[in-house]
Amino acid sequence: MTVSICTLAHGRDAHLVNLVHGLNAQEHQPDELVIGVMQEARYDLPATGFPIRQITLGATGVKLATARNAAAHAARGEHLLFLDVDCIPDPAFVADYARQLDAVDALLMGEVLYLAAGATEHGLDFDRFRVDGVKHSERSGPPAEPLGECTDYRCFWSLNFAIRRATYLRIGGFDEGYVGYGGEDTDFGRIVRTAGIAFKWCRGARAFHQYHPHHMPPVHHIDSVIANATRFRDKWGHFTMEHWLRAFTLMGLVELRDGELVQVRQVSDDDLALTRQQSHQPYASSATVLALLEARAPAIAAA
């Protein structure tokens, strides 16, 4: 079957170039790369043995869900392999996903290893990436078998996943009512689960996440997290992103008043310092920050 790689991009030129180099190194070449370009300018990218189609969506106000759906609708492959712009596919990435999607109509989620700052300065060295890449402590490891069952839709993560195009279009793709950061992945997982489509962890289909500074929990996106958690509640009957909301509550940023999430103060420099990923860390950890906040909570309550 034919394979389309789908990604979204806004800035991150060097990251996208590395993604394309990773696709050029594939054991099984994709049939195309489709880029949802969330800016006015198209990208100047390396030559490839497969077509690259850049779908220009404009510079402002483009929703992540809208861009993903646009890439999926523009794709011509029977299999859709979604990869974030800051990821580099392992040489077996396409072959691993294509083999499994040929056999099973399911939502597949491949492996992700995180690279430290500077890991790509001297080009792509996949052997070194496999040794130095770090698994996220808050994500499930690869299954023992080629495919493993995932029983919790909240585990869905759009960073690296694959699905048959016909299935994606049948369920309607991502809900474009989510604006900004947070919520749309969990909503998509719920849509997939409600539609009766199997969730599978995939052994292999590995991607290497390129370093960039980040905040976890994402205090820099607190407005959209609150709005999108509320949209999820209105749609499904309960809030999502509960761990982030718990952290925001312990930080004194958010309160639940009459069943509604309310931001009670602005994010401060101290909040940003607490949640900021350090340069020696390959990824930011919400669990680490939340554990620190939970440990502090009794002392604060007693003061």
Rank of each mutant, 00 (worst) to 15 (best):
I163P: 01
A198L: 09
I171M: 09
F174E: 03
E184L: 13
E176Q: 13
F208T: 04
E176A: 10
Y168S: 00
G189W: 03
Q210A: 13
I163N: 03
F199N: 04
C150F: 03
M216Q: 12
G182P: 08
I163F: 04
H215W: 08
D185E: 14
F174M: 12
Y168I: 02
Y153H: 14
R203M: 03
M216H: 11
E184P: 07
D152V: 09
D175Q: 09
F188P: 06
R193F: 12
I197Q: 07
V179H: 05
T186E: 14
C202E: 05
W201F: 12
R206M: 10
Y168K: 00
L169D: 05
C155Q: 10
T167Q: 03
M216W: 07
E184M: 12
C150W: 04
L169H: 06
G173V: 12
F188C: 02
H212F: 14
R170S: 14
F156Q: 04
E184N: 10
D152N: 15
L159G: 15
G172K: 10
C155S: 09
A162H: 03
R164Q: 15
A195Q: 14
T194V: 15
C202S: 09
G182K: 03
R165L: 08
E184V: 05
R164H: 15
L159P: 01
C150D: 15
D187A: 13
G177T: 05
F174V: 12
T186L: 11
F199Y: 11
G177M: 02
V179E: 02
G189H: 07
D152T: 06
H214I: 08
A198N: 06
H212Y: 13
P213S: 14
F156L: 13
I191S: 08
G204N: 05
M216R: 10
F156G: 03
G180L: 03
H214F: 10
F156Y: 10
Y181Q: 01
T167E: 00
Q210S: 11
F199I: 01
I191F: 01
D185G: 02
R154G: 08
I163S: 00
A166R: 14
R164D: 07
G196F: 14
R190K: 15
P213Q: 11
H209C: 07
H214D: 11
G183Y: 01
A207L: 12
G182L: 04
G173K: 06
I197V: 14
Y168A: 07
A198K: 12
E184K: 01
H209W: 04
A195I: 12
G172W: 08
I163T: 02
R170C: 07
G182C: 07
Q210R: 14
R170A: 15
A166Q: 14
R193C: 10
I191L: 11
Y168E: 00
W157K: 04
Y181H: 15
A205V: 06
F161T: 06
G204Q: 07
D185Y: 04
P213H: 10
H212T: 09
G204Y: 08
Y153D: 10
I191K: 14
A207K: 00
G177Q: 06
F188W: 01
T194Y: 05
F188Y: 10
W157I: 05
H209R: 12
F161I: 03
N160S: 15
M216F: 09
R190E: 11
D185V: 05
P213A: 14
G204A: 07
